[in-house]
Write a protein that binds this DNA or RNA. Sequence first.
RNA 1: GGCCCUAUCGUCUAAUGGUCAGGACAUUUGCUUUUCAAGCAAGUAAUCCGGGUUCGAUUCCCGGUAGGGUCACCA
Length: 446
Amino acid sequence: MSLLANVVTRFAPSPTGLLHAGNYRTALFSYVYAAQNKGKFILRIEDSDRARSKKEYEDNIVESLKWLGLPYDEFYRQSDRLGIYRSYLAKLIESGQAFVSKETPVESGGRTEVIRFKNPNAKIRFADLVRGDIEFDTTELGDFVVARSLDEPLFHLAVVVDDHEMEVTHVIRGEDHISNTARQILIARALGFDLPAYAHVPLLLSPGRGKLSKRGGAPSITAYRDRGYLAEALVNYMILLGWNPGDEQEILSREEIVAKFSLGKIQKGGAIFDEEKLKWFNRQYLRRLSDGDFALHASPFVPEWLGTGSPAFKRLLPLLKEKISTFGEIAEVFDKNGELDFVRGLLPYAADLLLWKKKPEREGARAHLAEARKLLAAVSADHFTAERIKDTLWPYAEEHGKGDVLWPLRVALTGKEKSPDPFTAAALVGREEALKRIDHAIKYLA
RNA sequence: GGCCCUAUCGUCUAAUGGUCAGGACAUUUGCUUUUCAAGCAAGUAAUCCGGGUUCGAUUCCCGGUAGGGUCACCA
């Protein structure tokens, strides 16, 4: 990959709502492309619509980028740059390429004049880095509005001025901007600017194949964080939506992504965001975490009675690591009726649950339980590990039928239809508690 | 509706003017120390349709169809 000189890309969202994965995927493309070329990545808040823009959304954008690990080199806010737009607007008017237009207000109290761009009605053609040549006849656009007044520039004017002033070389954005490009090129030409390269990436689609949108129920990026997804997993999944390195590798480190990325290999069709596959990626990343990092990420979801510092959590950790796809699931497994809440205490269960459905014999179950108890009692508290317990019980279980012995034991220990194996369960609750629960089950069956 | 864009398994995608059209997720089945999950193994599953060009097209061209985007004093 040859290095392009002075690459500058930007992510230019408007803070009018919480942004979703589709928005951040284009940010990711921009970031990666800049990083690959050792260029600059700019965050520009497009808040020229003052009425709809909110600081909280801007904060969320900054927070999301930080979480995803997409640091920007420069930060701008359009509302801080009104003077700049004003001077360019004045230039356009002076040269006769824009004019103040008298309007009849559509609604009462509406504006009576706006600034319109004098459309030369040209055919615009540009080479898109993703989709090739695109041609537009701008005649149909008419003399479009570029500002409400000198101090109230509109989107197209602000974008063109900013991209020029910030020396943006590559405009990487969603394909919903394709038809805006012609207008923006017209303005840039009028101002005598050099044009940036354009790369319009396909949109992310909802499962219903519509554009991913807030209204369509698309979660914000911070919602994924709050549900216990790993940023690296999300980034890995997002970069593969509409792009791939050309081989069959799917798990890609940040370095590999930056090294292998290429605008030309971006897909032209839209891609559906599939949460199932995201979960799979998350599981892959989650399993590679060290125990310390795992505990750190798990912490917000671990119930208070457990705590990540407890010995109990330490024992639970390997189990959790293979059981969950997202950290949010930790809260579920420890919930009442969750798979692992037996660790906290035994919930009432039906005596019949102790009977293995393939051979539901009360007496047999009772006898096996009694024998298992005897074997278990022989293991000292110091050696009460899943491995040791298994070694102790295994020969007996083999001899008398694994299901016959193990099923009742597991239910006695956990009170649940679904749970970890009885050896692990016993180790998890500890020797005293395990014996107590087995005693309880034996009485229960009497 | 005008304009623009797109089209490979259910989903994300790979590949090629000649391949058994490959991989991953999901799904199905089997295996693994009782259950559930995980893991492992195997299986099902795709080139939108119609014309051309060509010895040969999923690949190139045209048309159709379908889907998406956009048509603001929003961005």
